[in-house]
Structure formats: structure tokens, C-alpha cells
Amino acid sequence: MNQPDASLPESFETLFRLHYPALCRVAFAVVEDEDTAKDIVQDFFLYCLKRKDELTFNVGFSQYAARAVKNAALNYIKRAGRITSFDTPPELPDIPGRHQETDESEITRNAALWAAIASMPQQRQKVFLLSNRDGMKYADIAKQLDISVNTVKTHIKLAYQFLRKECEWMIRTLVVIFFISK
């Protein structure tokens, strides 16, 4: 399916009408507030409208939009200071079409995640947990561990890469479950 040309006003409205509900669900899954989710999606479309001549998509618009809205929602939560603990991630709301996990599968997923974290090199694990579990800023971590801020950034980047690789099976399982539940 071809995406409408975002440079044309009527096509932009088509993109908005076509993708707005799904993007609101993406944002709501992260921020857990309907009005905030709508604001995030509207801000995204305003951003696109203002930069319609500059924007080019390497992937389809829907993929770009979903990722951009998810990142905007995560940034909103980060700015609001609502990420408090890596141990207890926020529960995603019940969204139509979303498969409800059983307690057993959630326990298995969390155990696999913590096992992956435990298998990281000690310094990387320490930096990652100070940042994500304890909510410390990069500068504070650098000062506490007597390393540079760039070293902290490198450890965080490598930790995320490692976790993506180690937990790839979880992502595949979630995708399969999502398509089976449809």
C-alpha cells in the first residue's frame, strides 16, 4: 500500500486520519493517560507538518510514526520523572487486541532479563543499574565511579546492545503472540 504524499495538505490530513487512533494507542501504552497520549500524537503531527518539506522516510510512514511517538512518550515520562525503578516497570494498560500475559510468562521474562543483566561485565552492569534502577544521571554515575561521562555513555550503550541481543527471543515471542491474538 502506498503512503499518501505528506507534502500535500489533503494527503497530510489522510495520514492523520489513518494513523491517529493507532498512534494514540502506542502513546497511551507508555504514558497511561489518554489526554497526554493525544497531545503527544498531535505534537508529532504538528512537527511533521512544519517539516513536511524536510522529512524523508527510509521506512514507511506508519513505522516511522510509531517509533517517533513511542520515543516522544518515553521522553515525556523521563521529563516528568516518572521512571523510578528498574525493578518494577509500569504495567501496560489493557488495550484491545493486546494479549494479556500470564504471571508465569511474566516471571520467566523478568528472570531472563535479570539473568542477562547479571551476565554483563561487572562495571557495565553497575553503570547500567545505577542509571536505570537507581535513576542516577550520567554525571553523578561518573563522579561516583570515578570515570568519565563518555565512559558512562559507552557502558549504557553497550548494555542496551547486549540486552537487545540476549533478549531477542522475547521480542520474537511477543510478536508471535501479538499476531496469534489478532
Rank of each mutant, 00 (worst) to 15 (best):
A27T: 00
F45I: 05
H19P: 10
Q63L: 03
S7P: 02
D35P: 00
S62P: 14
V26Y: 04
A29G: 15
D35I: 07
A22Y: 14
A37R: 01
A29W: 01
G60C: 14
V26M: 09
K38L: 00
D53M: 10
R17E: 11
F44I: 01
D43E: 11
D33W: 08
R51H: 14
P4S: 07
E32Y: 06
L46C: 09
C24K: 12
P9Y: 09
F28M: 06
A6Y: 08
E10L: 09
F16L: 12
V31P: 03
S11R: 01
V30F: 08
E10P: 05
Y20E: 04
P4Y: 01
V31L: 06
D53I: 04
A22N: 15
F45R: 01
E32W: 04
E32C: 10
A27V: 05
F61M: 13
V59N: 12
V26L: 02
L49P: 05
P9H: 07
T36N: 12
P4R: 08
Q3K: 13
C48M: 11
D5Q: 04
R51Q: 15
F44T: 03
L55F: 15
A37M: 03
T56C: 03
A29T: 11
A6T: 11
F12G: 02
Y47Q: 05
L23A: 04
D43C: 10
R51Y: 07
L8S: 14
D33L: 06
Q3V: 15
E13V: 12
Y47V: 13
A29F: 02
F44W: 07
V59K: 10
V41D: 00
S7T: 15
V26H: 00
D39K: 08
L23C: 03
S62V: 15
V31F: 01
Q63F: 02
V59S: 13
D5H: 09
L18F: 07
F45H: 03
D53K: 10
P4L: 09
T14E: 14
Y20I: 08
D35Y: 03
N58S: 15
G60F: 02
L15S: 03
V59I: 05
R51S: 15
S7F: 02
A22T: 12
S7L: 11
P4W: 00
V30Q: 04
P4T: 06
L15D: 07
D53V: 02
L18N: 10
T36G: 02
F61D: 10
F45A: 03
E13Y: 08
S62I: 14
S62M: 13
E34P: 03
F12N: 04
K50P: 09
R25W: 00
E13F: 00
P9F: 07
F28I: 07
L15R: 07
C48P: 05
N58W: 08
C48F: 05
F44P: 00
G60K: 09
L15T: 01
H19F: 01
Q63P: 06
P9N: 13
Q63D: 15
V31G: 06
Q63W: 13
L46K: 13
D35A: 09
A29Y: 04
K52R: 15
F61H: 00
E10Q: 13
A22P: 04
E54G: 01
A27K: 03
F57H: 05
Q42L: 04
L49C: 06
Y20S: 02
P21I: 07
D39T: 08
D53S: 10
P21N: 06
V26Q: 07
